[in-house]
Computed example of a mutant assay.
Amino acid sequence: MSYPKLVRDRIPAIIAEEGRQCRTTTLSEPDFRVALLAKLVEEAEEVQTALDDELLTELADVLEVFDTILTAHQLTMAQVRQVQELRRQTRGGFDKCIQLEWVEY
């Protein structure tokens, strides 16, 4: 099976331990950043379809990718939290469970 996708560091070793073979490449920094963003979407889709007993694991995977994106872009969680709070103050959070149905133009 062929598919280029970003995987966790130990995945090639796990594949080898199972008696299978794989081929890997090491991405350049720009390609790694692009792959990380694609991986974030992949993991978010897995959260969306997760069953209740899978949700925690899938959220942990999203957080792992998120943390790696921060590192790759030399950002900190403190910076993200600061912007999050500003956006919460100006646009609100999601506490009221509001779904927008339509907007008239």
Rank of each mutant, 00 (worst) to 15 (best):
S2Y: 11
S2P: 03
Y3L: 10
R10C: 04
I11L: 05
I11Q: 01
P12G: 03
A13E: 05
I14P: 00
I14K: 09
A16N: 06
E18C: 03
G19I: 00
Q21V: 14
Q21K: 12
C22T: 07
T24D: 00
T25D: 08
T26V: 12
T26C: 06
S28V: 05
E29N: 08
P30M: 05
D31A: 04
D31N: 06
R33V: 02
R33D: 00
R33N: 05
A35D: 03
A35P: 02
L36P: 04
A38Q: 09
K39E: 03
L40N: 02
V41S: 07
V41L: 14
V41K: 12
E43L: 06
A44Q: 06
E45P: 00
E45Y: 02
V47I: 05
V47A: 01
Q48T: 08
Q48N: 13
Q48D: 13
A50T: 03
A50W: 05
L51H: 14
L51I: 11
D53W: 04
E54N: 03
L56T: 15
L56F: 15
D61W: 13
V62G: 01
E64M: 14
F66A: 15
D67L: 11
T68F: 04
T68S: 09
T68A: 13
I69C: 11
L70I: 07
L70Q: 06
T71E: 14
A72Q: 03
A72K: 08
A72Y: 07
A72V: 05
Q74E: 12
Q74P: 02
T76N: 01
T76A: 02
T76S: 10
M77C: 14
A78F: 07
Q79A: 15
R81S: 12
Q82W: 13
Q82Y: 13
V83L: 15
V83W: 12
Q84H: 13
E85M: 15
L86G: 01
R87H: 13
R88H: 14
R88M: 10
R88N: 12
G92H: 06
G92M: 08
D95A: 14
D95L: 11
K96D: 12
K96V: 13
I98G: 00
Q99W: 10
E101Y: 01
E101N: 06
W102D: 14
W102A: 13
V103F: 04
E104N: 07
E104G: 04
E104D: 11
E104I: 06
E104W: 07
Y105R: 12
Y105K: 12
Y105E: 11
